[in-house]
Design a protein around this nucleic acid. Structure first.
Lengths: 240, 240
DNA sequence: GTTGTCTACCTGTCAGACAACATGGTAGCA
DNA sequence: TGCTACCATGTTGTCTGACAGGTAGACAAC
């Protein structure tokens, strides 16, 4: 006979779970404003500090956003997806680690996306490719950069696998906030031909995904990352 | 001229970041007890509710654990790694999604592990393989199951890439808590030969990783997941 | 039409208090 | 001596009430 550990649940935890369920069930859709803390406290029969602890937890995992003086709002989970706090733990020398991780994971993502993508997702990928090509100019660095990020996010979305997106999104977003930016800016400012080449590689991925050719999509993404590594350090990590 | 958005930082956020940094710097190692909330409040010049909000956030992302009447303790990040809250959002039909994600990602992980592993990590992988083979018995289902999980976690660790581990760990851990368990138990109880075969596939992965053969490691892991899919549903998702 | 002001609402923070819980020591008892 | 019951202490969990500061909308003044 086995006994499970009894763990008395905190009121704040239960408040968080109730809110979680409500959000999950669509009671509070993305961008919706939650009831005020005072109202939540009253309706759940707890005090405001307890509600605030629950909200603090939900904010920490990136599910809601607190806007002072206005209210608490539901965030798009796949866009924020927490982890910022976790990744703070390895903030310094991790840029190359992120690139390494993305280098090995994203070809697999591209492969799956080529099997599962919908027509809408194909359109989105191509639209971003257009943007990338039109933004290939030093003065529009920031716009180009976010477009690049959106391409990779859209690709993960195209797999239709929300958990895969949940795992990859922080890797893609975090890179945005890190040294990668410096790397990119450095080469981008002086090497315009390279950037158009990378943009073209994005298009290759999109075309393979659109055509439903998993193997080709994988290879295009591998080529993309090989090019990126040459750009940032001049050396290769892919051995095969 | 561009202006940046002004966003005043909350005191509770700063408290959380200070604690985060302290943990990261090893001031509070794993399993260590943090100072009491009252002491933290006094030393940081804020009130206890503010400290509690910060602690609530850290607990939500799985960095600390609050034990009532005792104190707050630092958790092993790679073992907890939050997300439980996030994945609650997609609790139902997501088991196959997790398998799908792991099926495409883990071969890439195995490939990298074969390039980066250390001797210690090789020993650990083989040790777990031994366990798996000795535990291949219906009565020891639970032990077998956690050993299986530890194998995959150890493999990610063997890549030496902490961010990759951070992204993969929740996928591996979450599967443990989900329907997968039911699947596995179902076949495991009646299909002992299959389980020994899967255990053998683990060993193949370990051997390829130990030998430093990335391509072989990838193929062994792909074979592992093909076998898993046959076991749970009798159909294949890998097209190549 | 723009600016300033007022008001109502909401979040962020604080102080103090009490209950529940866990730990360790102590006194009482066999 | 050895065990048990009790209590003091420290800590977390929760509550109440309050105030400061930010935000948005309405309205008056220029």
């Amino acid at each position: 006979m086995e006994f499970r550990k009894v763990r008395p649940t905190k009121a704040s935890t239960e408040v968080a779970q109730q809110l979680l369920r409500a959000i999950k069930e669509g009671v509070f859709p993305v961008d919706a404003k939650l009831p005020s803390e005072a109202e939540l406290a009253q309706r759940m029969g707890v005090s405001r500090p307890t509600v605030r602890e629950a909200l603090s937890a939900l904010e920490a995992v990136g599910l809601i956003e607190a806007r002072p003086g206005i209210g608490n709002f539901v965030k798009n989970p796949t866009e924020s997806m927490a982890f910022e706090a976790l990744f703070l733990l390895e903030t310094e020398a991790s840029c190359l680690e992120i690139m390494e991780a993305r280098t090995i994971l994203e070809p697999a993502v591209a492969e799956l996306a080529a099997q599962k993508r919908t027509d809408d997702q194909i359109s989105l990928l191509f639209a971003i490719c257009e943007e990338l090509q039109s933004l290939a100019h030093p003065a529009r660095f920031d716009e180009y950069f976010t477009a690049d990020k959106r391409f990779h996010l859209a690709l993960v979305q195209a797999t239709g696998n929300t958990l895969l997106a949940a795992a990859m999104t922080p890797l893609i977003n975090t890179m945005d906030q890190r040294i990668y930016r410096e790397f990119t800016r450095a080469y981008y400012m002086k090497d315009l031909p390279s950037i158009t080449e990378v943009a073209a590689l994005h298009r290759e991925v999109a075309e393979a995904v659109a055509a439903g050719e998993p193997h080709k999509a994988r290879e295009a993404m591998e080529a993309h990352w090989r090019r990126m590594w040459r750009l940032v350090s001049g050396e290769e990590i892919l051995t095969r």
